[in-house]
Simulated assay, not measured.
Amino acid sequence: MRLVQNSLHAEVAAQLRDRIFAGELLPGSFLDEVHLAEQMEISRTPLREALKVLTAEGLVRHEPRRGCFVNEVTEQDLDQIFPVIALLEGECAREAAAQATDADLEALEALHDKLQRHAKARRINDYYAANFTIHEAIIALAGNPWLAQVIGDLRKIVKLARLQQLHAPGRLDQSLSEHMAVFAALKARDPEGAEAAMRTHLTRQRGALRELARNQKSRLAP
């Protein structure tokens, strides 16, 4: 696929990022610059700039004299990242509760209605999409671009783990209950309650991912 000349490294980075998240470029795999440049029909200069961007995001690691590899996320990484995300998104929920207008809350109510319908129908992929939209909406309502940027970068790293926490037993209903608790605090314009509910939600999400990883490991054990 030929990239237009003015796309430069940003478009190259976006395409590589999509391929990593799609599982086309697997964690731990070597990123062959010559092969990728030929495949994408670009010179190695924008490719190297794109790899620098992905390295800064934590999606790629550079090893001296060896080159670039897709990063691998360990359980320890997730244990360290999730408390930070919980802290930051908790702050977003706190600020959103203090600043949300009636129109904002009406829009959030429509999103939560959709979330409930997907949960009731057990449409997990649709639930994931609605869940992501709700988190993004709350982050946007906080009106703090610095928080949004850091959360977005950390989420990219978590996404490398390719674990779907809603497949953990009972997690779908638990997740919905947690979301409704966050929304109840937002409607009540209770900043402290919204912050606590969001932090609980993300802490339990980490617990579900840990359980899922344990189950996968036990199934693979001889």
Rank of each mutant, 00 (worst) to 15 (best):
P27K: 12
G28R: 09
G28Q: 09
G28I: 01
G28Y: 03
S29A: 09
S29W: 02
F30Q: 02
F30I: 02
F30W: 05
F30L: 06
L31W: 02
L31I: 11
D32W: 05
D32M: 06
D32Q: 07
E33F: 00
E33P: 01
E33C: 09
V34P: 00
V34Y: 06
V34R: 04
V34I: 02
H35Y: 09
H35E: 11
H35M: 13
H35T: 09
L36S: 07
A37H: 03
A37K: 04
E38K: 08
E38V: 08
E38Q: 04
Q39G: 09
Q39P: 07
Q39L: 15
Q39F: 08
Q39K: 09
M40E: 07
M40C: 03
M40N: 03
M40Y: 09
E41Q: 04
E41P: 03
E41Y: 02
E41D: 07
E41R: 04
E41S: 01
E41L: 08
I42R: 10
I42C: 14
I42T: 11
S43F: 02
S43M: 03
R44G: 08
R44A: 11
R44L: 13
R44E: 14
T45M: 01
T45L: 09
P46L: 12
P46F: 11
P46I: 12
P46D: 13
L47G: 04
L47H: 05
R48Y: 10
R48F: 09
R48H: 10
R48Q: 15
E49M: 10
E49T: 12
A50K: 06
A50R: 04
L51C: 11
L51Q: 08
K52A: 14
K52V: 13
K52S: 13
V53M: 07
V53I: 05
V53Q: 06
L54Q: 06
L54D: 00
L54F: 00
T55I: 04
T55D: 15
A56Q: 12
A56K: 09
E57Q: 10
E57W: 07
G58D: 10
G58R: 09
G58P: 11
G58A: 07
G58V: 02
L59C: 05
L59E: 05
L59A: 00
V60Q: 13
V60M: 13
V60E: 15
V60S: 14
V60W: 15
V60Y: 12
R61C: 03
R61K: 00
R61T: 03
H62K: 02
E63A: 05
E63K: 02
E63M: 01
E63I: 12
E63S: 09
P64K: 10
P64S: 10
P64T: 09
